[in-house]
Write a protein that binds this DNA or RNA. Structure first.
Lengths: 213, 213
DNA sequence: CCGGATCCGGGTTGATACTG
DNA sequence: CAGTATCAACCCGGATCCGG
């Protein structure tokens, strides 16, 4: 991207991350941790492969990602500490977007692991002294679930299956999203196609007191 | 901009504000409040006039800005409440950009009122019970200063001249920036070309306890 | 002068094909 | 698997023009 050539923090930030696709690449690396080229491409439906390669080079130049070589010779990409600091930016954008997440337009791509983003925004461990609990989220149309673990006051979300989850939420991603954000009760969400198997009380523990939107 | 067509909050947000220049236009409206077309163009050096017109239309469509007509028949643009909510996003980007604000490259445009952004990020009223104080910032190369007022625990920054400021900081914008961010003492900044006239203690009151960067 | 609209050249993006 | 190469379509920047 051409630089804005303005001595202003916002303009400087956008010179680095304002390009199309750039912040979405950071999103992928934040959620998945270190990733291979093909993983990134799968998590960024619609991106052209040459653009992904270009952006990865630019991000490496800018010091936001690091390229390493796995044992099998496959290239691996992961965020540097400086790149991880963009988490606050992405969180702010994600929070601002909450009112835009009502209904899913047909044709919109879905990836289960994207649910890790709202999890970090809207969930917290409300009972730090209780034993850990595990929640699994399964978006319809995606084979890869997200596992949410609450323990010692912290909530972590990661792509992948849980072993012995206390609660599993499966259904359309917008229904899962509504429940996570606290806009809908879990009972009402069943009518929107949500299936909940396990211990529903897990949700009470995880939901923040002040519901968002 | 083409939609990313992803059911993900970040992608939805970028569908609306991810276009080139869009967030910088929001910056202008946040700092200046309601603005005329020409004011916006002056505050966005480098923008093509047709792009500004296009973006203003898109932003109005998206419900982020509102067009009104002033008494003299001049068009006025201002943020809607929804548009103002982007302040958190811009703050996050501005904070992330702090390490990028070291030196000014030659050719970089400067506008004095852009200093209002770091003011909001790095200053606070540390003495709510004292009488109000006023600080004026004058960036070299720009005729329009910024006025900072601290009163009752709140700090406001607005473009324009102050009446009877308690302290005036004038000099290269990067020197003013360094002092605001707490990276440099006001004495050391004099060597970088900063002129301080008035009551330096004003700065102690305004600087946050934990210095940024 | 204000508030744009129009036109054009060049750079960026997107889709697909191809390669080590 | 991990990208390059190619090319058309679109977007951006700069200049010009135009009605109040």
């Amino acid at each position: 991207m051409r630089s804005y050539r303005q001595y202003c923090g916002l303009a400087r930030a956008l010179d680095v991350v304002g390009d199309r696709w750039t912040l979405l690449i950071i999103r992928e690396l934040l959620i998945r941790g270190s990733s291979r080229y093909t993983d990134l491409r799968d998590g960024l439906p619609g991106i052209a492969t040459n653009l992904l390669a270009d952006r990865l080079n630019e991000l490496e130049q800018a010091g936001l990602i690091q390229r390493s070589v796995a044992s099998a010779g496959a290239a691996l990409y992961e965020l540097t500490p400086r790149g991880k600091e963009l988490e606050d930016v992405i969180a702010a954008l994600g929070r601002w977007a909450a009112p835009l997440m009502g209904r899913r337009s047909r044709g919109d791509a879905v990836r289960g692991h994207w649910l890790a983003l709202p999890v970090q925004l809207y969930l917290a461990d409300g009972a730090p002294n209780e034993p850990p609990v595990t929640l699994e989220l399964r978006a319809t149309g995606d084979s890869e679930p997200v596992t949410v673990e609450a323990a010692n006051g912290a909530v972590r979300a990661r792509p992948g299956r849980a072993t012995l989850p206390d609660l599993v939420l499966a259904g359309p991603p917008e229904a899962i999203m509504s429940v996570l954000m606290g806009r809908v009760e879990i009972g009402a969400a069943r009518r929107a196609g949500l299936q909940a198997t396990g211990e529903p009380a897990v949700l009470q523990r995880l939901q923040r007191r002040a519901p968002n939107q």
